[in-house]
Structure formats: structure tokens, C-alpha cells
Simulated assay, not measured.
Amino acid sequence: MRFTLASIAAILQFTAVLAAPADLQKRASCTLTSFSNLDTVKSSCTTITIGNLAVPAGKTLDLTDLDSGTKVIFDGTVTFGYKEWEGPLVSISGTKITVTGSSGNLLNGGGASWWDGKGSNGGKTKPKFFYAHKMISSTITGINIKNTPVQCFSINNSENLTIDSVSIDNTDGDVTDGGHNTDAFDVGSSTGIIINKATVYNQDDCLAINSGEDITFSNGYCSGGHGVSIGSVGGRSDNVVKGVTVSDTTIIDSENGVRIKTVYDATGSVSDVTYSGITLKNITKYGIVIEQDYENGSPTGTPTSGVPISGLTLKNVKGSVTSSGTDIYVLCASCSDFTWSGVSVTGGKTSTKCEGVPSGASC
């Protein structure tokens, strides 16, 4: 049998048609409104729109190991059933993943079902909310989160991740036996993290960096929590924080404003940290607090030098502390190369317990 160029072309075209459905399936855009379809959607769709969705109790909205370039769009209200477990309620991982929220989107953690005033220190076992683990060269933009049972974002082993214009509203937890340990962003073992325009109402750290390098938090609004924190640093497998910038951020109605805490008798390091353009309002405990004696809930009062703090710049950090609070508290055993300019924190008490205050700082 002889084949002409025309016949060969026809055969190739027919073969391509046979192959096309599988290829198209991998590129499909899908909407997820039933949790039972999650695995199918993950395996066959590279644009995943999540509409109104009820996640069953004890289950994770598991969007891990997504294909490179996958888009996830939250386009409705996501709710989560109640169960005492560690979670997470949402988990996303992959490379070049784009997560966005459409207008009116909401991830409602239903935190009131778990809240008992004890957070992760006892009482009910409470699920963490959102794991952004192993997200590489990815973005999370414009999602709205409400009432997390405990900590919200856990950012770990991620690189070049940008989180922009995210809101976290846990104001319903501002009651007796309410929300506790509701950290907004916990960062560990990650590099190149940018958190911009976050709006946070919670009952713990707005930001807590436990380890990592090249981390930026900018244009934030933090209300009701424990401030914008480095640490606690020490006692983990990774205890190095380097190259952090916190800028143009308001911290209001919170226990602390600017905060650095290293763990008593631990090892590690904190270096090259800058807070600039920080506005403090109605801070109830410490406007600025730097302590090297941290133990969960009960600092020792005796600083240790195993986690030195060096290269700390405070520039234009200004605002008010309540009369029962303390403007600035520094307790150091190994602090060096501090540069403070335009620092003005007033309204509270002047500490009589500062120790080891390095040249360039004041207390």
C-alpha cells in the first residue's frame, strides 16, 4: 500500500483527534460544590473554582500537590463541620499556584464551636485552619477568612510566596472563653515571603516569624491581638530568622506592638530586622518589647544569650500605650547593632526592669 503526503497528513490528524479528549480533560476548568468530587477535580482540572461548599467534619479541603500553574478561585462560602481534631481545614501546595477570591468569597471556620478560651493550650482539640506548605513561586490574593478555631495561616517550607489583600476576622472570639492562639500568619523555614495589605482582627500574634529569611510584611492592619512578632525563636529544628522587614503597618487595640521574643536557654539567631512606619494605638501591655527570656505564657525574667539579636532597625515607630501598659521593654543578654530613629511611644509607664539595652536603642 502506497502512502501519499495527503494520506499521511490525514492519519496524523486522526491520531491527534483521538488524543485530544485526554489532553483537554487535563486542561479543564471545573467548579467544586460537592466535597465528594474533590479528588476528581484535583486530578483533572487546572482551574478549580470553589463555589458554596460544605467540608465534612474531620476532613481537609485538600488541594496539595497541584499541577504546576493550577488556578484556585474561591467563589462562594466554604464551611467546615465540627470535630475535635488537629486539622488543617484547608491545605494547598504546589508550584506557580494562583489562589484568588472572587467578590464576596468567605472561608468560615466556625470557630465558636471550638472556642473555650484555651486555644491550643488545652480544652478541646482545635484544628489549624490553612496550611500553605511547600507553595513555591505562588500567590494567594483576596480571600476572606472568618472565625478560625485556632491559628490561621501556617506558612512552612515555602519559597517566593506572596499573600496579598487577605482579611482575617475573628472578632466574634472577643468574648469570655472565646478565641485564643488565633495567630494570623505563622511563618517557619520559608524564604521570600511577602504578606501585603493584610487586615487582621484576632486574639494572638498578627504575624509570628519562627524561622526563615527574606520576609516582608507591609501595609497591614492588626487589631485585637498580640502584635507583629519575631518569634518565639528557639526550641525548634530551625531557629534562624534573617532579613525581615515590617513596614507601613497599624497595630491597634492589641497587647503588644513591635515584639521580638527568643526562648530562654535555647539556641538560634535573629538578624537584619527592620520595623519602619509603624503606628501604634491603644496598646495595653508593651508598645515595643524585646525579650530573651521567653517561655510560653511565663517569661523567666532572666535573659539568655543563645539566640542573639543583631541588626535591629526601628524607624518611625510611633504611637500610644494605655496608662496601665509599658512604653518600651528591653531585656537582653546578647543584643547588638541596634539603630532606632523616630521612635516615639508614649502614654504608658517607663520600665524599671530593662536590661542589656544595646547602644542605639532606648528603654
Rank of each mutant, 00 (worst) to 15 (best):
V55N: 11
C30A: 13
V343M: 14
L161W: 06
A6L: 11
K261L: 07
T4A: 09
N196Q: 09
S218R: 13
S305K: 11
A28C: 05
N170R: 03
W115R: 00
D265S: 09
N316A: 13
G220L: 00
G268A: 04
W340D: 06
I195N: 03
G81Y: 15
S154Q: 11
L314Q: 09
M135P: 00
H133I: 02
S229L: 02
P303K: 03
I288R: 01
V317Y: 07
D116L: 04
G360N: 12
G69V: 10
G212I: 00
S211I: 00
I140P: 01
C363T: 04
S359G: 11
I168R: 02
E86M: 11
S223K: 09
E355C: 08
G110S: 10
V357I: 14
I168A: 09
T304G: 05
P149H: 03
A28T: 14
S138V: 13
S102C: 12
L161N: 07
L53Y: 14
Y264D: 11
G117N: 10
T279Q: 10
E213S: 15
G111L: 06
S237E: 12
T279D: 10
G325E: 00
K261Q: 10
K118H: 12
S138R: 05
K42S: 01
V228S: 09
E291S: 10
K26R: 15
